[in-house]
């Protein structure tokens, strides 16, 4: 392609954008991509948190008081034999207290008021697949010598179903928003085609190729898509940083994704989506309104 031709395409596309893209439609496109980006980040974070929690899902089985050392050893081997169990480790009540203190850090005074260690002996049971936690916990709770099991009952399951629910809702929302964006961009392209219909007619009569006629409109759609996505990225990054700061100070235990690479990848994905949606929009509306 000649540089002069490329310059022509870009010039025409920009003229088309200036003529047929209102601030209103650009604003809608930016808002749409912003929602898509937020959706993406929410999803990435939920996935991250669920991975984080899954890797930590384990069953703690508290033992009855007064078991002998051999009872404990026997129970340990029976626990290890349960299908789906990866590792079983014994946590003596003293060890348990030490860990609790470490977790509580500056709130350890809560424990200092107690005169005696309130914790029983326990086993920590790691699982091969955290999804089986409920049934394995049930099996273990029925074993003799086990007083009580704790695995954050219900929390893990809720997390799994929530993740799936959010995924499905996100996909639905994505489809709706993508069609909205395609429609808005397509409409701008349609207006451009309409504004230039005389030129197009003459171009074809003097021997311009179909692709020569099409390129400016295709580029126009892509440019609007990428510009909308780009502007929304800028807003998204600022918003997310604010969110990270807020969560960081208010809820430090929530492991949000702050990896700049992940955020950059999200922005790139948005830009790419913008280009694809813009191209799709131009193409679909050109098929209907540009008779070549």
């Amino acid at each position: 392609m000649r540089p002069s031709t490329l310059r022509y395409y870009i010039g025409e596309s920009l003229a088309g954008i200036r003529r047929s893209t209102s601030l209103m439609s650009l604003g809608t496109i930016i808002a749409s991509f912003l929602v898509l980006g937020m959706l993406g980040l929410v999803f990435i974070n939920i996935y991250h948190i669920s991975q984080f929690i899954e890797s930590r899902v384990e069953i703690r089985a508290f033992l009855k008081d007064g078991l002998s050392a051999s009872d404990i050893r026997g129970l340990q081997s029976r626990l290890s034999a349960v299908p789906g169990v990866k590792r079983v480790s014994f946590i003596s009540r003293d060890e348990g207290l030490k860990r609790l203190k470490a977790q509580l850090q500056d709130k350890r005074f809560l424990l200092d008021v107690m005169e005696e260690n309130p914790l029983p002996d326990a086993f920590d049971i790691e699982l091969k697949d955290p999804r089986n936690v409920k049934s394995i916990a049930a099996t273990i709770s029925r074993m003799p010598g086990v007083d009580e099991v704790n695995y954050g009952q219900g929390f893990a399951e809720t997390l799994f179903t929530t993740t799936r629910f959010i995924l499905i809702v996100s996909m639905g929302l994505f489809a709706i928003i993508a069609s909205l964006v395609v429609f808005i961009i397509g409409n701008a392209v349609r207006l451009s085609i309409f504004a230039r219909r005389r030129e197009i007619e003459i171009m074809k009569l003097v021997g311009a190729t179909d692709w020569f006629v099409r390129w400016p409109f295709l580029l126009e759609g892509i440019m609007i898509g990428v510009a909308g996505a780009g502007l929304s990225c800028a807003v998204l990054v600022v918003l997310y940083q604010t969110c990270l700061d807020y969560v960081g100070s208010g809820m430090p235990f929530l492991p949000l994704v702050s990896d700049p690479f992940v955020i950059a990848a999200t922005c790139l994905a948005l830009l790419f989506a913008g280009a694809v949606m813009g191209a799709t929009a131009s193409w679909v509306f050109m098929k209907r309104h540009l008779r070549v």
């Binding site: 000649r2 002069s4 022509y8 030129e199 003459i202 171009m203």
Partner: peptide
Amino acid sequence: AFALRVTETPP
């Protein structure tokens, strides 16, 4: 010039 431009004639 339009007829030349749209048929990709060098400037």
